[in-house]
């Protein structure tokens, strides 16, 4: 097995903050692995992904993606990855297709031409099929500002799949998407993994989406709390589903054993 994501002692402290958002995280993801990175709001998932994808500078530690150092070989890293950001990163004034075309050109897949019709047939075919899979077919030529929230999300997914990355980072990819589109997306990602051996790094709050992963890592207040296959986690917690196991774990973990709303409010400082 070849490690494709190697993280060692990663620390990130944002400017003007007192405590690090990511506090000494280490883990390894193998080539072709389906890896879930779970944790509560503010646990440090997006911060970690941003560093791994070269969009955020780390404070310390070492990270290698596909064998390349994220600082010294940033371009090679970028070449190897695909990314769906948690926060929408579309140009809202351009049409959906223009956003995709821009992306395809930035990744050197097709020569940029000023209209869809002038783009190579191969491009048009690819975009149409991907748009079909997530179901944005008729929204393709609308300005992003005029798409619904879920449609815009689907568009970001199509965009990130236009090039076929070795490592795919998905930061809450399915937020706001309808059930059918979610199912189609996961089927597609499964086929990418099977046929191309794509490594998938997923964060999500829909824990059932992590049910089929090879490894689940829990990050808790910037630290890795647990890393194991989902089956092991379920067995340990004596739960039937990963979702149950995850919640059971959170309730049992040291420092936050509140189970009622009142206790939670006290714990989190909302109520005294």
């Amino acid at each position: 097995m070849t490690p494709v994501i190697e993280v060692e002692d990663l620390v990130k402290q944002y400017k003007k903050t007192k405590t690090p958002a990511v506090d000494g995280v280490s883990f390894t993801v193998q080539e072709g692995e389906f890896f879930a990175f779970l944790g509560q709001n503010g646990a440090g998932k997006t911060t970690t992904i941003s560093i791994l994808t070269t969009t955020l500078a780390k404070t310390s530690g070492t990270v290698r993606i596909a064998g390349f150092d994220i600082d010294r070989q940033a371009r090679e890293v970028r070449e190897a990855i695909g990314l769906i950001f948690q926060r929408p990163s579309l140009d809202r004034t351009m049409t959906a297709e223009q956003n995709i075309r821009f992306h395809a050109a930035m990744y050197g897949l097709y020569p940029y031409r000023p209209s869809f019709r002038l783009m190579p047939a191969d491009y048009r075919d690819r975009v149409t099929r991907l748009a079909d899979i997530v179901g944005i077919g008729d929204g393709l030529f609308k300005a992003v500002a005029k798409l619904s929230g879920g449609m815009a999300r689907k568009l970001e997914i199509v965009r990130s799949l236009v090039h076929t990355p070795r490592v795919l980072f998905l930061d809450e990819p399915t937020q706001g998407m309808d059930a059918l589109a979610r199912r189609n997306l996961w089927d597609y990602i499964d086929s990418m993994r099977r046929e191309l051996g794509t490594t998938v790094f997923l964060t999500t709050h829909y824990i059932d989406e992590a049910e089929g992963t090879d490894t689940v890592c829990l990050i808790d207040r910037g630290r890795i709390a647990l890393c194991c296959p989902p089956a092991e986690m379920k067995a340990t917690m004596g739960a039937a589903t990963l979702d149950d196991a995850y919640v059971a774990y959170l309730r049992s973990r040291p420092g936050l054993d509140a189970t009622t709303l009142g206790e939670v409010l006290v714990e989190s400082g909302v109520r005294r």
Partner: peptide, 12 residues
Amino acid sequence: SDFSSEMLVAPV
């Protein structure tokens, strides 16, 4: 608009 992330993550 966070579009800069989309540009900056590209391998160029």
